[in-house]
Amino acid sequence: MSFTEVLLMMFGAILVENFIFSKFYGCCPFLGVSEKPGTALGMGMAVTFVMTISSAVTWAVYYLLLKPFGLEYLKTVAFILVIAALVQFIEMFLRKFVPALYSAMGIFLPLITTNCAVLGAALVNIQNGYDFIGSVCYGFAAAIGFTLAIVIFAGLRSRIDYDAAPRAFRGFPLTLIAAGLLAMAFAGFSGVNFS
């Protein structure tokens, strides 16, 4: 892939095909860890970190191990295995060598082990036939899109908390409505097409 292609692909992954609003990947952290902008950012950072590395590793596993043996159909189960082991490994590594980073996003890492956004990025990489650089960039950009969405949403939620909404709407109902409105705002990007 050329440099321009990669750049456009990344722009598309962040805004046009946002993981949460267009593909519905990673909805559980989007609703679960978006109460405060600070924790949302921590979660976003952890997802970005893991998704970039896992994109690289799953690409290698697919093209160097599964494809030569004609086992493409095993990719989903193999990727789950790879990602779970990878996240555990990263957690141990960070705890030993980068304690500052570990204390910043350590509690989020176990949550990401089975995060569908991470698995989704790995599968989309294969589906779209990206090369190694393309896969890593796509994983990174999709995670940035995820971070953008979850941080904006956390900001919205912290404002909603102070509104005197009707009792029946307080809490989760209003959160879902706000998520819907935010998704509609992001739908404005859906017409953007570079090809």
Binding site: L66, F69, L71, V77, V82, A85, F89, M92, R95, K96
Partner: peptide
Amino acid sequence: LTPILILAGLGLVFGIVLAVASKAFAV
């Protein structure tokens, strides 16, 4: 046999790597 061996091999390799890492990176 090939897919079974490959998946089991992957699991075994990751298991060993994690076991070694948990000792080597023990805090």
